[in-house]
């Protein structure tokens, strides 16, 4: 094929691509999408916590903390030490770990912030180091499943910071990549 033919054909392809339409949104689509986003977004945050017992846990339960009275009386758990629970995950392989919080009372409108170490990501939140949910805890055991992905082999310490009214506590989970 001659170069002039190829150039002409490439120009024709480019013209077609330039004209390739993207239809406008249907009437009211944006309005409906915005309304649904606010409703569904709020609902998902409320439902982020799955209130189940230990028996329902299908993934590895790696960390359990008592909240209840401790939350009311102690501002922080002890710093990193032998008592810190840990989990080992494989590089680039998503693994669900369950954080279990046992609360002595119902806690409405609590805020949970998960802070990830470098090289560990939460599935569905690529590149984010910190993810925050508003949630409520029921009396009893509350299970929070987190699907972790190691993008580098470094590992580190995951922090789960729980705030309720003017009280807060930070929980730690050691994540190793093996």
């Amino acid at each position: 094929m001659q170069n002039s033919d190829a150039n002409k054909q490439e120009q024709q392809v480019l013209e077609l691509l330039r004209d390739y339409p993207a239809p406008a949104a249907d009437a009211d689509f944006y309005e409906r999408a915005l309304v649904r986003a606010t409703h569904e977004g709020s609902k998902r945050q409320r439902n982020r916590w799955m209130l189940t017992g230990f028996g329902a846990a299908v993934a590895a339960t790696v960390a359990a903390w008592m909240i209840g009275g401790l939350l009311l009386n102690e501002p922080q758990l002890p710093e990193a030490g032998a008592a810190i629970p840990g989990v080992t995950i494989a590089l680039a392989e998503p693994r669900t770990v369950n954080l279990v919080f046992a609360s002595a009372t119902t806690l409405d409108s609590a805020t949970l912030t998960v802070t990830l170490p470098d090289g560990i990501e939460l599935d569905g939140f690529p590149g984010q180091r910190e993810i925050t949910w508003e949630t409520s805890l029921s009396e009893g055991r509350n299970l929070l499943p987190l699907t972790l992905v190691a993008v580098t082999p470094t590992g580190g310490e995951l922090l789960a910071h729980l705030e309720h009214e003017e009280r807060d506590r930070t929980f730690r989970l050691r994540v190793e990549v093996g």
């Binding site: 239809p23 689509f29 999408a33 977004g41 998902r44």
Partner: peptide, 25 residues
């Protein structure tokens, strides 16, 4: 549209983006 290539999937993708964006307001 450019990513999904069709109406239904484009609208789903658009909607899902807005929901997640709202969660990260």
């Amino acid at each position: 549209w450019r990513l999904a290539g069709s109406k239904a999937e484009a609208e789903d993708l658009f909607q899902e983006l807005l929901i997640r964006a709202y969660q990260k307001l």
